[in-house]
């Protein structure tokens, strides 16, 4: 399985600094901008602000602190990462992400392909455990509990986090069996309970009226948009606390996308939603908070409106206005 390291804070930072790119060498284009961080981003506000503090001598200092907007400090957090790093073999995909996901809100992760959004999302429910040669450092906390702790039952963790994937992936079973899959593996056999949960979940996913007459037919006979909403219903049926969505609309037509977006909008408050998306308009439409990631780092994170209308960093502005990425 995945090797998990828990370095002490000192060790983690020392490594981060050692491996940080030196100024003037092969810096990615975003770095110069980051160096002149916006003065608004003061570290340590209320002791809550998770700005990554440079801890070492000026020569080693790497100005990688993300721009975290102050509004986030006022939120209650359900999920948080602390200097979280992830390696695929020798390749490091996440370079120390420190962020907090507010409870009951929709948080969008945006950024160009390969920036680590999906990797981060899949770290929250430890789905990366399935991939070989993945190594993680730093911490992810869910409701205060370190999810990589030995005592944590990963099965229970995943039951608390529903996930919806880029490509809709209903199982080759009936629609009903798809929705109640999580209950089935939990050992639920009572017909009445299964039927109830099925109806409730399909209603939440705005799918009930379309499929109520064919619950016992194969889910593979549904249209793409219906399949994706079925996957959402399946995730909701497990009554998770967090809903992780990995580009849930990228394979859907505009009408189906609209339906799924309405659904996500309706789910706020009830669930904490983290959604990865390539579609900037979608992030703007459905999310309360938006995090912009670039090359495995968190660049800017704040209320969606600020990120799109009044971003603190030039790099964020360039990305959200479509000038790069």
């Amino acid at each position: 399985m995945v090797k998990t390291e828990h370095p002490t804070a000192e060790r983690g930072h020392a490594r981060a600094n050692r491996e940080a790119p030196q100024p003037g060498t092969s810096l990615p284009p975003i770095q110069p901008v980051l160096r002149s961080l916006n003065p608004d981003i003061a570290p340590g506000r209320n002791g809550q602000n998770p700005v990554h503090l440079p801890t070492t001598t000026p020569t080693e200092q790497s100005p990688q602190g993300p721009a975290i907007h102050a509004e986030l400090a006022a939120e209650q957090h359900v999920l948080s990462t602390e200097d979280f790093k992830l390696h695929y073999g020798k390749h490091r995909a996440l370079h120390g992400i420190t962020m907090q996901i507010p409870a009951g809100k929709v948080t969008a992760l945006i950024g160009p392909s390969g920036c680590g959004k999906s990797t981060l999302l899949r770290s929250f429910n430890r789905l990366n455990d399935l991939i070989e040669n993945v190594r993680v450092e730093g911490r992810i906390r869910f409701q205060g509990q370190d999810i990589h702790d030995r005592k944590v039952d990963v099965i229970r963790l995943r039951k608390k986090m529903g996930m919806v994937f880029q490509k809709s992936n209903p199982f080759p079973m009936s629609i009903l069996e798809n929705v109640v899959y999580a209950l089935r593996i939990g050992g639920e056999r009572r017909r009445r309970v299964l039927d109830e949960v099925c109806e409730k979940s399909l209603r939440s996913a705005a799918l009930w009226d379309e499929v109520k007459d064919r619950l016992h037919t194969s889910a593979l006979g549904m249209s793409g948009g219906q399949q994706q909403r079925l996957c959402i219903a399946r995730a909701i049926a497990a009554e998770p606390e967090v809903l992780l969505m990995d580009e849930p609309c990228s394979a859907l037509d505009p009408i189906a996308t609209g339906k799924v977006e309405e659904l996500i909008y309706a789910l706020r408050g009830k669930y904490t939603v983290v959604i990865v998306t390539h579609n900037m308009q979608q992030a703007a439409r459905v999310s309360d908070y938006t995090a912009f990631m670039y090359m495995g780092r968190l660049v800017e994170y704040g209320p969606t409106n600020s990120i799109f209308v009044n971003p603190h960093l030039k790099e964020t502005e360039s990305y959200v206005t479509g000038r790069f990425g």
Binding site: L130, I155, K159, G162, F171, Y181, A182, A235, L244
Partner: peptide
């Protein structure tokens, strides 16, 4: 995707 979906549901 089938395996991931199932594992993500806590199987």
């Amino acid at each position: 995707g089938y395996r991931e979906a199932s594992v993500a549901l806590g199987a």
